[in-house]
């Protein structure tokens, strides 16, 4: 990766640590708690009872309430907390996020299986790439995470793009 802050005209200095491309965070296992799923679903106004009512979920053949489609990010945050507890470095720390300048650019989830309350899932996250736009005024990072269940395999693949707004 180039971090050519000497080249061109007053190119803003990037903040992300480009040398961390390829970094993989320590895989951790987290538990999906029912209360968290139900509270999360209700806050988003989710009306499908499979996400908030155990009886309704079981009546449709699910073992417990179903995590809504945006819940994988919660799983990633739980993984972040778990790594912090273990003293393991987290991707957003390793790449040098500055929360004063940070924005969420894109999010792409691919669903291969449902996440249920009560699941224990393992989470792996890799720093895939960095790139610049607008002459370096915006710098981007792509993080890829996989949420995996021991018996049911990969449940979700999540690709997150974060960016820094940089000043000249």
């Amino acid at each position: 990766m180039s971090s050519d802050d000497t080249a061109v005209t007053a190119r803003p200095r990037g903040i992300f640590r480009r040398e961390t491309k390829g970094f993989s965070a320590t895989p951790v296992t987290v538990r999906v708690e029912r209360g968290r799923v139900v509270t999360f679903a209700r806050l988003l106004g989710e009306t499908d009872p499979v996400c908030s009512d155990v009886a309704a979920a079981r009546a449709q053949g699910h073992p417990d309430v179903v995590a809504p489609p945006s819940f994988p990010m919660v799983v990633e945050m739980l993984a972040h907390e778990e790594r912090s507890r273990q003293g393991a470095p987290n991707p957003t720390e390793v790449i040098g996020c500055d929360f004063r300048r940070l924005l969420h650019g894109e999010q792409h989830h691919t669903y291969e299986g449902l996440v249920y309350a009560g699941d224990e899932v393992s989470v792996e996250t890799t720093v895939v790439d960095f790139y610049d736009k607008r002459g370096g005024l915006l710098e981007f990072v792509i993080l890829e995470s996989t949420i995996h269940h021991d018996d049911r395999g990969v449940l979700v693949r999540a690709r997150r793009t974060l960016l820094h707004r940089l000043a000249r």
Binding site: V50, P68, L103, G105, E106, Q107, H109, T110, Y111
Partner: peptide, 16 residues
């Protein structure tokens, strides 16, 4: 998901 159900969703992509 009101149409597909959560189980019918295969992918979701967003650009903010």
């Amino acid at each position: 998901t009101r149409w597909s159900g959560v189980a019918g969703l295969r992918s979701l992509r967003a650009r903010f």
